[in-house]
């Protein structure tokens, strides 16, 4: 690393700029020769919905059950994560070397973040939340890498709403099951509050209605988790393609801030997905006796009270 740093800082800027401009002009000329002058894209309606999700490459049953390019990229993401974990934990030393030290820092940061947000009892959710975070982070960042999204073989996994729907269903089923396992049949009291009928039929009916609305809001969480992650990553892809087309000749240097913005959005969306999943777990497992206030900040405020 130090030799790379020294080499990069010892270059003088003007020849470097000249080299970058030459590479830029060469790529634009190659594009002109291969594809001609740029024209308005030819989008036929049958291919549009595939653009939103990722193209099926090997069809098994029709168009829906197939091996699509986003699935292949997801396998690549899984391979990267598994290889990193395997290589880092092969020979565990008490004083960690490079890769193991980096992994330890990452895991410690995740555990600290989870325990900060959810309280000390939330440490058992670290595997799920941490895995979600790492997978979504790597998938989002792969959407910024040069070839992904341009060649038909690779497509960012989280830019495909099927995959984000799968992640949202995992989180949803996970926290509902955890809530039912912790609270038993009392878990459903937050929606179906039959004991409030003791205080009068009007109040009971009103709370049944409120419980129904809250149940709808819970089920909507699947949709919002899916759409938030997918919309941000897919919208980022669209933005990068549009900016590259608009800038065209000077695209290669000036596109870098946009790619940086896309990486920041990818990180933010990974954090938000994992933290929301963690919050749903914490909200599901706390006993919901004081019905009426269901703010998302309940977990963090209880942590602050226990500090003060």
């Amino acid at each position: 690393m130090r030799t790379i740093d020294k080499a990069l800082t010892s270059l003088s800027p003007l020849p470097l700029l000249g080299v970058l401009a030459a590479i830029d002009i060469a790529m634009v000329l190659v594009g002109w020769v291969l594809y001609g002058l740029p024209t308005w894209p030819d989008i036929t309606p049958s291919r549009i919905l595939n653009l939103l999700t990722g193209e099926p490459l090997i069809r098994i049953v029709g168009d829906e059950i197939s091996i699509s390019n986003s699935l292949i990229t997801m396998w690549i993401v899984m391979a990267i994560l598994i290889l990193l974990a395997y290589a880092g934990t092969r020979r565990l030393a008490l004083i960690p070397g490079g890769l193991q030290g980096g992994l330890e820092v990452a895991v410690q940061t995740l555990v600290d973040f989870v325990v900060d947000t959810g309280g000390p009892a939330a440490a058992k959710y670290v595997p799920l939340v941490g895995t979600l975070f790492l997978f979504i982070l790597l998938s989002n960042w792969l959407g910024v890498v040069p070839l992904v999204g341009q060649i038909p073989l690779l497509h960012a996994p989280t830019a495909d709403y099927h995959i984000t729907l799968g992640l949202a269903i995992v989180a949803f089923v996970g926290y509902q099951a955890e809530g039912i396992r912790t609270l038993g049949r009392g878990y459903f009291k937050r929606w179906l509050n039959l004991e409030s009928f003791k205080e009068g039929p009007f109040l009971g009916g009103l709370l049944i209605f409120v419980g129904f609305i809250e149940f709808l809001a819970e089920v909507i969480r699947i949709l919002t988790l899916t759409a938030r992650l997918w919309g941000n990553v897919f919208g980022g892809e669209v933005m990068l393609v549009v900016m590259a087309a608009v800038l065209y000749v000077v695209a290669i240097p000036i596109l870098l801030p946009f790619a940086g913005f896309e990486m920041f959005i990818g990180l933010l969306q990974a954090v938000i997905f994992s933290i929301l999943t963690l919050l749903y777990f914490v909200l599901a497992t706390e006993s919901h006796e004081a019905h009426g206030e269901s703010d998302e900040n309940h977990a963090t405020t209880t942590k602050e009270e226990s500090h003060a």
């Binding site: 759409a227 938030r228 919309g231 941000n232 933010l268 969306q269 954090v271 938000i272 933290i275 929301l276």
Partner: peptide, 10 residues
């Protein structure tokens, strides 16, 4: 901010 941006993305 993430929650509000989710509504914009919807």
């Amino acid at each position: 901010a993430g929650l509000a941006e989710g509504l914009g993305v919807l």
